[in-house]
C-alpha cells in the first residue's frame, strides 16, 4: 500500500465549557490515499464538519485538538504554528465551504482573489497568474471568463459563485481538498453540475478530496471510500459501494434505509427511532446503543473499536471475532 497523503490518528477534539469538557471528536482515525476521494457522512452534530475543520486548522474556539495526530505526507500538521499552517492551508490543502460567500471576499474582484492565491503559493508573476486565473475560470465553466474575471462575487449567481470557490480552492494546485457540504446551499439541478465538475477536476489533477456532506447521494456518486460518523466517532469506514449496499454497522444500515428512494414508493420508510445524543450526554459503551435494534449487554458497557466487518471496518460488537454474523 502506498503512503497515504493524509493520515488522521486517534484525533480528539474537545470543547471546554463551564459544564465540563465536551468531547466533539473521539478517537477518529482514517487516511486518504493520493488521488482518493473520501466521503464523510453523518447527521448534524455527528462531527463531520469538525473533522474537516480540524484538518485545515480552522477549529472554532474554544474547540481544540486534545489528542491524536494529523499527518500530511507523513509530516505532522496539527501542532504547527499559525503562520506555517496558513501556508500549508493555501498551498497543500484547499477548502470549499457550504456558503461561497464566506470564502470569497466581497470587496475584491474574483480575479484579484485568484491571482493573489496563486502568486502567494506558486512561482508566478501577476501577469502569468492572471492568465492562469482566466484558464481556471474557464475550466470551472464560467462563461466569458476573460470578462467575468473583473467582476465582484455578488455579481455571480449562487451556482457560479460556488464554481469560483472551486477554482479558488484548486488554483494553487493543492494535494488535498477539504470540501464541507459544497452543494448543500445549491438548487438540485445546480448541485448535479457542481458535483460533476468537482469530480472531473479532482480526477484530472490527481487531487485527493475529503468530501463532507449529509447527502448520501452525493457521496455515492463521488467518493471512493466513505466514513460514517456518529456522535463524534467513525462507526464505519469502507469502499463506498460496500457501505451503501451492504452497510455493516446498524447505524449505517439504518441511515441508508431511511433515505427515501426516488425509484419506488414505499408504504413505510425505515426509520431510526430517537435522536443522536447531545455531546453532553453521550451514552457509555457504544454511543448508538440506545437506538440500536441489535443491542446487547456488551454494547452498553464497552466501547467498540473499528474492526473488520463485511469487507468494511465497523465499530460494532456484532463483528467481534464472530464471522458468523457476517
Amino acid at each position: 500500500m502506498t503512503v497515504p497523503l493524509l493520515e488522521v490518528r486517534n484525533l480528539r477534539v474537545e470543547f471546554p465549557t463551564r459544564r465540563g469538557t465536551l468531547v466533539a471528536l473521539d478517537d477518529v482515525s482514517f487516511s486518504i490515499a493520493p488521488g482518493e476521494v473520501l466521503g464523510v457522512v453523518g447527521e448534524s452534530g455527528a462531527g463531520k464538519s469538525m473533522t474537516g475543520a480540524a484538518i485545515i486548522g480552522l477549529l472554532e474556539p474554544p474547540g481544540r485538538i486534545a489528542g491524536g495526530q494529523i499527518l500530511l505526507n507523513g509530516r505532522r500538521i496539527d501542532n504547527l504554528p499559525y503562520a506555517e499552517l496558513r501556508r500549508i492551508r493555501g498551498r497543500e490543502i484547499g477548502a470549499i465551504f457550504q456558503d461561497p460567500l464566506t470564502t470569497l471576499n466581497p470587496l475584491y474582484t474574483v480575479g484579484r482573489q485568484l491571482v493573489e492565491t496563486m502568486t502567494t503559493h506558486l512561482p508566478l508573476n501577476p501577469a502569468q497568474a492572471r492568465a492562469k486565473a482566466i484558464e481556471w475560470l474557464e475550466l470551472v465553466g464560467i462563461p466569458a471568463a476573460s470578462q467575468r474575471i473583473d467582476s465582484y462575487p455578488h455579481e455571480f449567481s449562487g451556482g457560479m459563485r460556488q464554481r469560483v470557490v472551486i477554482a479558488l480552492a484548486l488554483c494553487a494546485e493543492p494535494k488535498l481538498i477539504v470540501a464541507d457540504e459544497p452543494t448543500t446551499a445549491l438548487d438540485v439541478s445546480i448541485q448535479a453540475q457542481v458535483i460533476a465538475l468537482l469530480k472531473s477536476l479532482a480526477r484530472e489533477k490527481g487531487t485527493s478530496m475529503m468530501l463532507v456532506t449529509h447527502d448520501m447521494g452525493v457521496i455515492a456518486e463521488t467518493a471512493d471510500r466513505v466514513a460514517v460518523m456518529y456522535a463524534g466517532r467513525i462507526v464505519e469506514i469502507g469502499a463506498v459501494r460496500r457501505v451503501v449496499q451492504h452497510a455493516a454497522h446498524p447505524y449505517s444500515s439504518g441511515l441508508m434505509g431511511s433515505i427515501p428512494p426516488v425509484g419506488r414508493r414505499l408504504d413505510r420508510l425505515q426509520q431510526i427511532d430517537g435522536a443522536m445524543p447531545r455531546l453532553s450526554a453521550i451514552p457509555r459503551g457504544c454511543p448508538y446503543n440506545p437506538r440500536c435494534p441489535q443491542v446487547f449487554d456488551r454494547c452498553r458497557v464497552e466501547r467498540p473499536e473499528l474492526m473488520p466487518a463485511e469487507g468494511n471496518l465497523a465499530a460494532c460488537w456484532l463483528y467481534d471475532g464472530a464471522p458468523q454474523h457476517a
Binding site: M160, D187, V188, S189, G217
Partner: peptide, 23 residues
C-alpha cells in the same frame, strides 16, 4: 431534468447529464 439531477444511490453506474444553466 429534475429527475436526472437526483444522485443515483442504487449505484447502477448510470451516467447523468445535468441540465445546464440556472433558474
Amino acid at each position: 431534468a429534475l429527475m436526472e439531477a437526483i444522485p443515483d444511490l442504487e449505484m447502477t453506474g448510470r451516467q447523468r447529464i445535468p441540465v445546464g444553466g440556472e433558474v
